[in-house]
Design a protein around this nucleic acid. Structure first.
Length: 789
DNA sequence: TTAGGGTTAG
């Protein structure tokens, strides 16, 4: 075959192998197009081997248009060429073209797809949000007898992981008769990417114990999981395996180890390992910088950052994120500001993960408006950005804003486990059970039910919304429970005043082999305090210090004061405070003040509050508590004068409000609220109730008791509290005999507590009240708390 | 076909 060059002269025909060799060497697009031209000139444009190699090269250089045109120029492409082009589309983010070509191959040719066709087509299908294409391809591969092929199987497993269909990935993995290291590695990394850390470690264990050879990829894949769970012992095991198998100098493994030891607070080891990396790349540096930051050694992280900049090495968004003091923001406001300036100047602030980290810091510093501003300004919002803002609101108590932002997010993103746990936390804070149930439905439809965070939040939400039975049912159904899961269930019983059940569960937890945390003891102690279990509380405290070697935190001391104080042992509580090895802080004195309110001890209340006003002068809660102590002692003028201090000093009070759900609609009432459309009927109902209550012997403060109180303050104190309004409204709106559930954001006052007892008797209703502290179940004029609130 | 660093949660 003779070809002509452009001038029309005969060109000497070159050997096709010469071009094939030339193609192998082509490294850039211009080089490749030149070779392409020469191939045409020499008449090899229909040579399948040359065209296939060219197509392959074009797709490697992201020139899919050239690759496609070449493919179309061949009248009868073979399977290999089809595969090359499908692979090219898959690798160049053109899933639709890849799948179309696959469909064309099936429908319009006699060619039979092989394992490569399926592997490339399935990997293309992971580019679609819709999982149906991949599932269909998987089915086709089974029909074609390739369902059990190791190569196809590995790609299918990876596909299901990319779409977060963890259970399907697991099923395919289990069904493959032959498994190699790559497949096991795919399984481990897929689980890690989907936050199934404990499972990935388990699979790694199965792999090693089962005698399957592992490589450096295996170790590098499992290390982030171990680091995330801060499983230092398991991490050291992985480190030993790396040493034994000779992977201890592998840069991926070493970086993973640096990160692991940093997260486990073993900074020295991390530093040592980092020093052993001969030429650390940017990722190693980033791991080390983040390691210093999370161990609160910001000076070292900043100096490493400066070294990087001085060396001329480019930094990236991960470097910055690792520098932002997310875990210990307080005291690092200046650093945060400087970093933000750097990021704005360099333009790196537009990177979604950077702005997300800043949003998080500002939320933790309670600078919620700055956070929102940053969030609004960020052009490219990821799911993590939304999650950071939503959880920022819930953690700052702005639950309703969190929920409305969540609704906004839903039109753009599908929620992940982080989103739903944040929203469930908002529901739990609000007592919004209808929304909580709706989120539960959403969790089922999104297949998020196997996530331990999600399930624990559901247990917490049901318990805090009053459905302890539902919470326990879920808890029992969980196959995997960690310390936080147990803590949630134990504090649920504490919240409901069931101290004995909490203690029983605590014993069960110890038997199950889960080590208790400081929070566990706090939950058990709270349960004891709410149930009046003084002896048990003292035993647990002793157990914690002597058997478990925990150094009590200020919260533990406060809890002990609470236990003694609520039980009326006020003097003993004061002695306990005096003997503390540390200076008692506001929580300890606050607990004593709370106990003084229950037992109407104004003298000791004065002592406690004097300390509190010194230690935490801007906290209005303590003024309110002291005022309530005086009110409980019917000393209204004194109560009013304490409230006046708050007003004179212009301190912000948290307004009290009560929520009640009728059907699925929440209704919120504030003190003296007349804004509700049915306000008239509500006040009529209250008048009727007050009459009946008076007949039954209920005493409320009279106007004469308030004669020394200033007019404005008097009006406020006479106003009807939101609890009573919510109960009256529920009585109007629900059928006789229906249980009433209300949620108060602050602690219920003595007057409302007594009134609710009377109302439950008069109306023959069960009334469940959740306040900032716990649940009260009122029935037949008695409260489950035994007035022990 | 698989791998290392960072941000979001109970």
């Amino acid at each position: 075959m003779i070809s002509r060059n452009i001038s029309g002269c005969r060109a000497p025909q070159l050997d096709r192998n010469f071009f094939l060799g030339l193609l192998n060497k082509a490294t850039c697009l211009s080089h490749l197009t030149q070779t392409h031209a020469q191939i045409i000139l020499n008449g090899y444009q229909n040579d399948l081997a040359a065209v296939t190699k060219l197509t392959h090269k074009f797709s490697d250089l992201k020139a899919m248009r050239h690759a496609r045109d070449l493919f179309l120029s061949i009248p009868r492409p073979d399977l290999f060429l089809f595969n090359v082009v499908i692979r090219g589309f898959a690798a160049n983010a053109a899933p639709f073209s890849a799948i179309s070509l696959y469909t064309h191959l099936r429908k319009n040719t006699n060619l039979k797809p092989d394992k490569f066709t399926y592997a490339f087509a399935v990997s293309a299908a992971s580019g679609f949000k819709d999982e149906k294409y991949g599932i269909l391809l998987h089915a086709h591969s089974i029909v074609d007898g390739l369902g059990l092929n190791l190569y196809v199987g590995s790609i299918v497993v990876d596909f299901y992981f990319k779409l977060s269909r963890v259970e399907l990935a697991q099923k395919v993995f289990d069904g493959l008769p032959e498994k190699d290291t790559v497949l096991w590695n795919t399984m481990i990394s897929g689980l890690v990417r989907n936050c199934y850390y404990a499972d990935s470690i388990r699979v790694f264990g199965d792999m090693v114990v089962g005698g399957m050879g592992f490589d450096s990829t295996t170790l590098a894949a499992v290390l982030p999981a171990v680091a995330e769970l801060q499983e230092l012992k398991a991490g050291m095991g992985v480190h030993c395996l790396a040493l034994k198998a000779g992977y201890h100098s592998d840069v991926h493994v070493l970086t993973g180890l640096v990160s692991l030891y940093s997260k486990c607070k073993e900074l020295e080891t991390a530093r040592l390992l980092f020093g052993h990396i001969s030429r650390p790349d940017l990722i190693c540096y980033n791991a080390m910088i983040a390691g210093y930051t999370c161990n609160n050694e910001t000076e070292s992280s900043v100096s490493h950052f400066k070294d990087l900049l001085a060396s001329g090495e480019k930094v990236n968004s991960s470097t910055i994120v690792g520098l932002i003091p997310v875990s210990s923001p307080f005291g690092h406001l200046h650093l945060t500001g400087s970093l933000q300036t750097f990021c704005v100047k360099s333009g790196i602030v537009s990177h979604p993960s950077v702005s997300t980290a800043f949003v998080t810091v500002y939320c933790r510093l309670n600078e919620i408006e700055s956070a929102r501003q940053l969030f609004d300004q960020s052009k490219e919002k990821t799911l993590a950005s939304w999650n950071a803002m939503i959880s920022g609101y819930t953690q700052n108590g702005l639950t309703e804003t969190a929920i409305s932002l969540f609704r906004e997010m839903m039109s753009e993103f599908s929620p992940n486990p982080v989103t739903v746990t944040s929203i469930l936390s908002a529901c739990a804070q609000l007592g919004a059970i209808s929304l909580g149930k709706w989120v539960h439905g959403l969790i089922k439809s999104k297949n998020l039910e196997s996530n331990i965070y999600v399930l624990t939040s559901l247990v917490d939400m049901y318990a805090k919304c009053g459905s302890i039975v539902e919470a326990r049912k879920l808890f029992n159904s969980m196959t995997e429970k960690n310390v936080v899961t147990w803590n949630a269930m134990i504090s649920a019983y504490g919240l409901h005043g069931d101290g004995h059940e909490a203690l029983k569960l605590f014993t069960e937890m110890l038997h199950s082999g889960i080590s208790p945390s400081a929070v566990t003891f706090l939950s058990v102690l709270y349960a004891c305090s709410h149930a009046g279990l003084v002896r048990e509380g003292e035993e647990i405290f002793d157990h914690m210090v002597h058997n478990h070697g925990f150094e009590p935190l200020p919260e533990h001391y406060a809890c002990m004061v609470d236990i003694l104080g609520r039980a009326g042992k006020l003097e003993k509580a004061l002695d306990f405070i005096k003997e503390l090895p540390v200076e008692p802080g506001p929580p300890v004195w606050g607990a004593l003040l709370g106990a003084c309110m229950i037992h109407k001890n104004t003298e000791l209340a004065r002592v406690a509050s004097e300390r509190l006003f010194e230690l935490d002068p801007d906290n209005t809660g303590y003024y309110v508590l002291l005022s309530n102590v005086y009110s409980a002692d019917r000393n209204f003028p004194k109560a009013a004068s304490v409230r006046q201090v708050v007003k004179n000093r212009n301190l912000a009070k948290t307004p009290g409000c009560t929520l009640v759900e009728i059907g699925e609609t929440p209704h919120v009432f504030t003190c003296g609220d007349r804004s509700h459309p049915q306000a008239k009927a509500i006040y009529r109902m209250l008048d009727k109730l007050m009459g009946k209550m008076a007949e039954a012997g209920f005493q409320t403060e009279t106007v004469t008791a308030l004669h020394d109180v200033e007019e404005e303050e008097k009006e406020l104190m006479m106003k009807v509290h939101s609890e009573k309004l919510a109960i009256a409204f529920a009585l109007i709106e629900t059928a006789p005999g229906t249980e009433i559930r209300i949620f108060k954001n602050l602690r219920v006052c003595l007057d409302c507590h007594n009134a609710t007892k009377f109302i439950s008797k008069i109306t023959e209703r069960v009334i469940v009240v959740r306040d900032a502290n716990r649940f009260h179940h009122f029935k037949d004029g008695v409260c489950s708390c035994g007035d022990y609130w």
